[in-house]
């Protein structure tokens, strides 16, 4: 009896020891040197895994920085102090980042834009957009159910009167909302841009006028007013080249529909 117990124990112990030795040996043979900078960078990155850098998560981005020399300024939510710390780790130069924010190119909403039909479905933009292109008369406008707000990891988007609006202080410009919006009404613009176009309707002026009180007519008045050629009307909607814009504010004054806005 006691012999059987002892053989069983000895046998298992032998298997265990053997496996342990094999594992120990394997970890020596298959030793992969981990870059310690990687761990340091992961520590410094925000860890929200928002994907704004274009990689699957913060760890993947850290991998890319260390292994393939990816520039360190891809992370939209790193402040310049954090970037300095990262550049100290990588030994590279500090890269200047231009902070970007999301921008809703729609100023319609319940009281301004007309509705095609009354919608009583689930309160999700993606679902609503599948039903005859959404319940708004304007095919391009915000549906206001806040699918963008629900994907925002930073809580920067709120819905006011049926249109999403971005809190530019908390937004880091990661772009998750851009992908989530079924209407593609969200743009990423420089955070310091003061003037922007708040409409994305591509219909002709006469059609737009019937659909929304606040829609770009494509009248090109802004284009003619702009002294530096920063604003262009393409496909019946104005858009601003932020690199050229001098923020003079003339286009905002002249816009008949007041869809060019200035931040205070």
């Amino acid at each position: 009896m006691i012999v059987e117990i002892l053989t069983a124990a000895a046998c298992l112990a032998a298997i265990g020891l053997l496996l342990g030795a094999a594992l120990g040996f394997a970890s020596k043979v298959f030793f992969v040197k981990e870059d310690e900078r990687r761990a340091q960078i992961i520590e410094l990155l925000p860890g929200a895994n928002c994907g704004g850098c274009g990689f699957a998560g913060c760890a993947n981005y850290a991998d890319a920085i260390v292994n393939s020399g990816e520039p360190i300024n891809r992370c939209p939510s790193c402040s310049s102090e954090v970037l300095e710390k990262i550049s100290a780790v990588t030994g590279g130069k500090t890269a200047q980042v231009e902070r970007k924010v999301a921008h809703i190119r729609c100023s319609g909403g319940n009281s301004i834009a007309n509705k095609k039909y009354e919608y009583y479905g689930m309160t999700d933009c993606a679902a609503a957009a599948r039903l005859l292109d959404g319940f708004m008369d304007c095919r391009y406008g915000c549906l206001g159910f806040g699918t963008c707000a629900s994907v925002c990891p930073y809580g920067a988007i709120s819905i006011n009167d049926g249109v999403a609006s971005v809190d530019k202080k908390t937004c880091v410009g990661c772009g998750l909302c851009v992908d989530a919006c079924p209407k593609h009404v969200i743009d990423i613009i420089p955070a310091n841009a003061k003037i922007y176009v708040q409409c994305s309707n591509h219909d002709k002026g006469a059609v737009t006028r019937q659909k929304c009180a606040s829609g770009c007519l494509g009248c090109k008045i802004c284009e003619k007013t702009c002294g530096v050629g920063a604003i262009k009307v393409t496909d019946n909607v104005a858009s601003i080249d932020f690199a050229l814009c001098t923020e003079c504010g003339k286009c905002e004054e002249k816009c008949p529909k007041k869809i060019i806005k200035i931040t205070q």
Partner: peptide, 30 residues
């Protein structure tokens, strides 16, 4: 051969755990 068939559960747990660990280290390198 050792007439220890009744030990298979515990022996398998041991072997599988070690195997996964081994495969992981080996794959990481190879």
């Amino acid at each position: 051969p050792a007439k220890l068939e009744y030990l298979r559960t515990i022996a398998f747990i041991l072997v599988i755990a070690a195997l996964v660990q081994f495969v992981e280290t080996a794959l990481k390198k190879l």
